[in-house]
């Protein structure tokens, strides 16, 4: 056990954790936008998959990473519009529409992969960029400042999302729609439009999350590439109490423990691998159970809004 706490291992664990947290950050913060406006989108995983494939396919054929990223965002937007159409305009039960969206994204991404690519191929994704000066700091530089651009982007998103949600009138409008849509409506805020925008932002960020897997972290695509990450991201939104900073805390906790258990396995610490793999899930629950302060969820979460109903 001692060798897990050597400097090299700790640097390794933290570097891994930063990488692993990236998709959860994009998807989780995106979901926080949707949920703040009152819409639970359980289809995040499906959006990630279809966007991951789109980005991968564009890069495979053009070699242009930015075009791939843009495609992922646009595909995410289309999926977000679909989700909004069903859940906001048509006021459908959000739990079902999200699962439907997930099935659609899962199926379509595998189908396109099967038809257009056929077998596993790798691409050259976003390279690691060492940030000048900061990257030269021993240890810290290695952990934090030697990643691909999408990793930096995920962490920059945290303050940006916090600022938008907490400090701009637009963010307050999103939250008011999620807390009390009837009141917001009576004040002239368009509930539907606000929810459309929030869900679409969330979906576009889920798209970036997918792209971060296929063209930055893994540089490939395969059937069901996300393996349920989108659902973990949704769970982390509850962990973070709908706050970007809290979501970052959850994502980092989850991925640090995950990186830690991999190191334990590599170093041959004598516990069953299955128990090691369980650890991040166990500790995320435990961490939430022992922290006292808990945010209340948006009051109108999961409730379609219809004018005239209370």
């Amino acid at each position: 056990m001692n060798q897990v706490f050597t400097l090299g291992a700790i640097v390794g664990i933290l570097t891994s954790a930063i990488r692993l947290a990236t998709p959860y950050l994009y998807a989780g913060i995106g979901e926080a936008f949707a949920q703040s406006s009152g819409v639970v989108n359980l289809g995040v995983d499906g959006i990630m998959l279809i966007s991951a494939f789109s980005a991968f396919y564009v890069v495979l054929n053009t070699g242009n990473l930015w075009l791939g990223l843009l495609t992922a965002i646009l595909v995410g937007l289309v999926m977000g519009l679909l989700m909004s159409l069903i859940s906001v305009t048509l006021k459908a039960e959000q739990g079902i529409s999200g699962i439907g969206l997930h099935m659609f994204g899962l199926g379509l991404s595998s189908l396109l992969f099967n038809v257009l690519v056929g077998t596993v191929k790798t691409i050259t994704g976003f390279p690691s960029i060492k940030i000048p000066l900061l990257g030269d700091i021993p240890i810290v530089g290695e952990i934090f400042f030697n990643h691909s651009i999408l990793v930096y982007g995920a962490f920059l998103l945290v303050p940006v999302a916090w600022w938008i949600l907490d400090k701009t009138s637009w963010g307050l409008r999103i939250k008011s729609v999620g807390q009390n849509p009837a009141a917001a409506d009576s004040l002239g805020v368009s509930v539907d439009r606000t929810r459309y925008i929030s869900v679409c932002i969330g979906a576009m960020l889920a798209g970036v999350a997918g792209a971060s897997l296929s063209i930055s972290l893994l540089d490939l695509f395969q059937d069901n590439l996300t393996a349920g990450m989108g659902f973990i991201a949704v769970a982390l939104v509850y962990f973070g109490g709908w706050k970007p900073l809290g979501i970052m805390g959850g994502a980092l906790l989850f991925s640090t423990v995950n990186a830690f258990q991999l190191w334990m396995q590599v170093l041959g610490v004598n516990i069953p691998s299955d128990v090691a793999v369980m650890l991040p899930y166990l500790l995320t629950i435990a961490a939430l159970a022992v922290t006292v302060n808990r945010a209340r969820q948006p009051a109108a979460l999961n409730k379609p809004f219809e004018r005239g109903e209370s």
Binding site: G8, A9, G12, T15, S16, R19, L20, P23, L213, L217, L218, L220, Q222, D223, N224, L225, T226, A227, M229, N258, A259, L262, W263, Q265, V266, L267, G268, S273, D274, V277, M278
Partner: peptide
Amino acid sequence: ISKTWTGSFSDVALMTEAAKTHIAA
């Protein structure tokens, strides 16, 4: 020889990170 098991036949992301961990070690 160090071995890692991801607990899943399909989790590419964790498998990738496992390989990176081996390399880092």
